[in-house]
């Protein structure tokens, strides 16, 4: 690999669309989620304070290794997005890398928090499977794993599948972003923390902040035409990403409001069968051929 490419990838990983961008955008999304999920805290300022409170104090040193590894994988997924000004060449971005990185990040978190009684591993595994369907089925008809190509794909026969995958993706986000109690080792944003303040809670908190951009950015890359490399393009991309985050918070709020029974019913009886039907539909439409 030429040194130029290495430099581009490093910039991408550390600055944009990697660490700095993910932390900034994730913090905004996390503050918004805290404000929406726990309005009793007051306005945006108390929400921001509660988000920053998860960061370790001066007495604590470092973050848990698993958390850092998972965050690094999430940043690798960020590089695969079709974001404007992404320094990684379009031909080098791959949906499969993003999928494996994010799944591995989630699994790292789970090996770390596997034995926590308040969590529901079955639900999270089901949601991950459904998310993979939403991520990979749109690639069946175009036979292409480049996110920007999928966002641009214009096969009329694939439109129903893409629409189904779009909804499936959105429905999976609350569990993948740790926004519901069944999938949040650290508790929902703004809620009473499940971990004692310290390194562990900080690790979980940081990881969720970093996860917003790759999940919502991949959504923007997969289901919308790529944004141009200019200011308007950046604004458009941010609007889609923040819109996606808003939708996932709204779904989470409805799930939390209606209770654990509804959440389980929603994921096992609605989202999982819908994913199976989406796969079936994708296969039938692929057999009918791209028109």
């Amino acid at each position: 690999m030429p040194w130029g490419d290495v430099f581009d990838n490093a910039i991408g990983l550390l600055v944009y669309p990697g660490a700095v961008a993910a932390l900034l955008l994730g913090a905004i999304a996390e503050i918004g989620a805290t404000w929406a999920l726990v309005p009793e805290r007051g306005g945006l300022r108390p929400a921001a304070r509660s988000v920053l409170a998860v960061l370790p104090g001066s007495a604590a040193r470092g973050f848990p290794t698993f958390s850092l590894l998972a965050a690094l994988l999430a940043l690798v997924a960020c590089l695969q997005m079709a974001a404007p000004f992404n320094p990684v060449p379009a031909g080098d971005r791959n949906l499969l890398i993003a999928a494996f990185a994010l799944i591995a990040a989630a699994w790292l978190t789970w090996t770390w928090g596997w034995s926590r009684g308040e969590l529901d591993p079955r639900l999270v595994l089901t949601v991950q499977a459904c998310w993979l369907v939403a991520l990979l089925v749109p690639a069946v008809v175009p036979q292409n794993f480049h996110p920007q190509a999928l966002g641009n794909s214009a096969f009329p026969s694939a439109v129903p599948t893409r629409a189904a995958c779009l909804f499936l993706y959105l429905m999976c986000l609350p569990a993948l972003l740790n926004l519901i109690p069944e999938a949040a080792p650290q508790g929902v944003p703004g809620g009473p923390g499940r971990r004692l303040p310290g390194i562990e809670a900080a690790g979980f908190g940081l990881l969720r902040i970093v996860l917003w951009l790759p999940y919502c950015g991949l959504f923007a890359s997969l289901f919308f035409a790529p944004s141009s490399d200019d200011v308007l393009g950046i604004i458009r991309f941010l609007v889609i990403v923040l819109g996606c985050a808003m939708v996932s918070v709204a779904i989470s709020l409805n799930l939390i409001y209606r209770g654990a029974r509804f959440t389980r019913r929603f994921y096992f009886n609605v989202v999982a069968p819908f994913a199976i039907i989406t796969v079936g539909l994708g296969m039938v439409l692929a057999l009918l051929g791209p028109k």
């Binding site: 439109v159 129903p160 209770g259 509804f262 009886n269 609605v270 069968p273 819908f274 539909l281």
Partner: peptide, 21 residues
């Protein structure tokens, strides 16, 4: 406009409606 999409919208509505408490 796409009939398959209409059917998918009905399917999703049916699932979410049935999941309501």
């Amino acid at each position: 406009g796409n009939p398959v999409l209409v059917a998918l919208a009905v399917l999703l509505t049916a699932g979410v409606h049935a999941a309501l408490p």
